[in-house]
Design a protein around this nucleic acid. Structure first.
Lengths: 260, 260
DNA sequence: ACCTGAACACCGTTCAAGT
DNA sequence: ACCTGAACACCGTTCAAGT
């Protein structure tokens, strides 16, 4: 086995390791009023800010340190390595997704449709706001407190749909993975436009021009043309909403079917 | 704007650039029997082999060159940069997905369900076989010949479902993104087990142990336990199959509904 | 307890030469 | 036409010191 740069620590996840929570967020010391010192929270917030602004590819421990006005190695006091830091930042933004309240009695039992839509929409919104997140979600285990809170809420909602217990995971996967994929391509597309220096229209036109004279592409050219004209955002919303319609109608159909 | 390592070339995609196909695959020269020289095909195949064997994180132009028994800069004769090479390799493996024949008359018109299942399954299989692919699919435009052939076939199939034309993209997105997400987490999980040195059972047990004594996780613990016991692969197949059931039932329901 | 400096083993890529 | 060598501007991280 070759010994690459990060080959030594094959830990599955920061959240499973004993160092999770070991380096506690520093209590605001009553005596000292200086806000100059670092802090895990400060480091994580700066990380998220940098990732949002410049993307994952440009993010580095050295740039983060520079942004914090500090030497590269200072950050390592608060975090063991880059992977841990990214895993923490990723979990943090999972907290941005609104989840329905736990108390089942306050909500109509049949409200699972609306709640499922809301969860999928919130997830998508988060992914679009932080395109780096969809990259990292694949990379790590997502076992942090915010991510598991979201997962728990999603499972709670799908259970209300009335499917047999062993069917719920499959149905939830359908919705979850769809929202993940949709939000991912949406966020990446926006990111690509930004980093390519061109705007969405120009980029779409480039794609369209490249495909227009290829008969083997079948209906694809029409598909692309659909987006070069008219209101793109509206089409995206319609596609997203209709896909959710499909998923919910599918769940309804299979709940009522005999083999359920 | 900061000038990072690859800040100079904001090209949207190799396939849209004029250099696509400019560096032609060398014709097997009739006179010379030496197989020592490089070749775009050889470079791409070695790239895929390395990515499969060691993963994207460990792949580098320098390691590729070493694997080819050549100086780092030699590769750059065949390819402009790392991004282009990865984009080509990614398109290449899209060719592994079996697609139904174009000729509509040879297939039953109602066969779209089976074809859709087959496409989703093939897509998932490809992603699991090459976990690096799902990472790159997000990164690039997927406008190469193999990727567009797959997209064309998928669109052809969804059109046969009988949905109104402007609903087809949303429905296809639901299926496509689901298969992408499912195959992604499946492939990454296997990859994680490999690089963590542990096997699937041990890793799952770690996750389970970390969550067992947390009451706020609701039904999640049961969800994980479901996978720690019994036949995992079978559960995965069932979940995948049922999710496809949901999607197809949903399409059926919305095709027949009044607002279609 | 918190931060620094120098160093190591890596990157992708440019540029000027070699054959 | 094809490949090399040296160099540049980056990485993540270790380790030994500083305060």
């Amino acid at each position: 086995m070759p010994t690459g740069p990060r080959a030594a620590k094959p830990q599955a996840s920061y959240w499973l390791s004993d160092r999770a929570g070991a380096k506690r967020r520093r209590e605001p010391e009553a005596g000292s009023g200086n806000g100059a010192g670092l802090d895990l929270d400060r480091v994580v917030r700066a990380t998220i800010r940098l990732l949002d602004a410049e993307g994952l590819a440009r993010f580095s421990m050295r740039r983060l340190a520079a942004a914090l006005g500090v030497t590269p190695m200072s950050v390592y006091w608060y975090v063991d390595n880059k992977d841990d830091l990214l895993e923490i930042a990723l979990d943090e933004i999972n907290g941005e997704i609104p989840v329905p309240p736990d108390d089942a009695t306050t909500t109509e039992p049949e409200d699972w449709r609306g709640q499922l839509r809301a969860l999928a929409t919130g997830y998508r919104t988060m992914l679009v706001a932080h395109p780096w997140a969809s990259r990292l979600m694949g990379e790590y285990l997502n076992a942090g407190p915010r991510a598991t809170a979201f997962a728990t809420a999603a499972y709670r909602v799908i259970r209300r749909a009335g499917l047999p217990e062993d069917r719920a995971p499959g149905a939830l996967a359908a919705v979850h993975q769809f929202a993940y994929g949709f939000g991912t391509v949406e966020g990446r597309w926006a990111e690509r436009c930004r980093t390519a220096g061109t705007d969405e229209d120009e980029l779409l036109r480039e794609v369209f021009d490249a495909t227009r004279d290829k008969p083997e592409l079948g209906g694809l050219t029409g598909l692309i043309a659909r987006h070069t004209t008219g209101r793109r955002d509206e089409l995206r919303e319609r596609d997203f909403a209709f896909a959710l319609d499909v998923l919910i109608a599918g769940i309804d159909a299979l709940r009522d079917s005999a083999d359920g």
